[in-house]
């Protein structure tokens, strides 16, 4: 057992030699994966990475701040289309052609565009709660998809939009392997940002709002600011994840952003564990793997998917992260 003596120790992201070993193993596994996984497995890994980013963002909103969003796919779509149009426009500008459209800026543009809409959707959230807020966000998600369908100049209509290949200078990221490194670097960076955010006064303000917004306001948390901020940050993650997914799939079409997807994102967060960053990762990984890996189950896929979600929630209401905590607790006195 470890005795925590200082506040910094309590706040540390990684604790003790076991923690560092775990981090090292995870890093090694992530780095080694491209040499062990086949092309299509890497593609799925890349999709998982982009979904993890969206799930982390949604968890900041739902798990930490206690707001709800049934239209998160709207932010994902905005991010994906904004990034794609930014890169395409950039490539067309003759002066910048040698840059080939900087994808890292595009990813940030995708995130920022979504964040702007996050603020807009966050405003009604100041007055609405629970079921009412869920309907507002639901409407937002549906509206974005309908807008895309009926605005061919943006969405390419139902013909779809082809996304240019990401490139760093002369290096074209046209293999699943190179995309893997891009996607997972983003996952690591954005996870760290999220971890730090939740440990900072901002994260505490979010949690305070979730537990009781009146009590939070009394203790000096600016409700208007932090609720809107939560929506903006969450939307930024969604937009960023959407932009990444656009680069991975290299094709966009409005049906990719339907209501089902919003529900799936919410399911990832709940199954993984509300209010935990690793939970978002577990949830996004499990549910994406189920969808993509079980395509052989054919008609039974939705049944299997549903059964797994029900099973996880029944035996572990705190989600996969709850189970992980129990395993950690149990292994503290290992090997006895």
């Amino acid at each position: 057992m470890q005795l925590i003596q200082k506040y910094e120790e309590e706040m540390a992201l990684v604790r003790g030699w076991a923690g560092w070993m775990g981090v090292a193993l995870l890093a090694a596994a992530l780095l080694a994966a491209p040499w062990f996984l086949r092309g299509y497995q890497l593609y799925i890994a890349n999709i998982i990475g982009s979904k993890i980013i969206v799930a982390i963002g949604l968890n900041l909103l739902v798990g930490y701040t206690g707001q709800i969003s049934l239209g998160h796919v709207g932010f994902v779509a905005i991010g994906a289309y904004a990034a794609t149009h930014f890169v395409t426009a950039f490539q067309k500008a003759a002066a910048f052609q040698w840059l080939g459209g900087p994808f890292w800026v595009a990813l940030l543009v995708g995130g920022a565009a979504a964040a702007v809409f996050g603020v807009l959707v966050g405003l009604p959230a100041l007055r609405l709660e629970g079921p009412y807020l869920s309907i507002v966000t639901l409407g937002f998600g549906l509206a974005v998809q309908q807008l895309l369908i009926n605005w061919p100049a943006v969405s390419g209509g139902r013909i779809g939009l082809f996304v240019p290949t990401a490139r760093i200078g002369p290096w074209l990221l046209n293999s699943h392997q190179s995309m893997y490194f891009l996607v997972w670097t983003c996952v690591v960076l954005l996870s760290l940002v999220a971890f730090n955010l939740t440990r900072s006064h901002v994260g505490r303000a979010f949690v305070a709002l979730r537990d009781s917004d009146i009590a939070a306001e009394v203790t000096g948390v600016n409700l208007r600011y932090y609720k809107t901020l939560a929506f903006a940050v969450s939307a930024f993650y969604a937009g960023f994840g959407g932009a990444l997914e656009a680069y991975v799939v290299r094709y966009l079409e409005p049906t990719m952003f339907n209501l089902y997807e919003s529900i799936y994102y919410l399911a990832m967060v709940v199954v993984g564990g509300l209010g935990t960053i690793p939970g978002s990762m577990f949830g996004a990984t499990l549910l994406t793997l189920l969808q993509f890996g079980l395509s052989q189950a054919q008609e039974y896929l939705p049944v299997v998917y549903g059964a797994v979600v029900i099973l996880v929630m029944t035996i572990e209401p705190l989600g996969l992260y709850g189970r992980w905590l129990k395993i950690k607790l149990w292994s503290k006195t290992w090997p006895l």
Binding site: G39, Y43, G160, M256, Q296, A297, Q298
Partner: peptide, 23 residues
């Protein structure tokens, strides 16, 4: 004949075709 479900979703159709061809 190997059948894969894509739920009418392009990202899943891509994964399925990659898997069918490569695995």
């Amino acid at each position: 004949f190997e059948i894969r479900d894509d739920g009418y979703q392009p990202p899943r159709a891509v994964a399925n075709v990659l898997e069918l061809v490569e695995r």
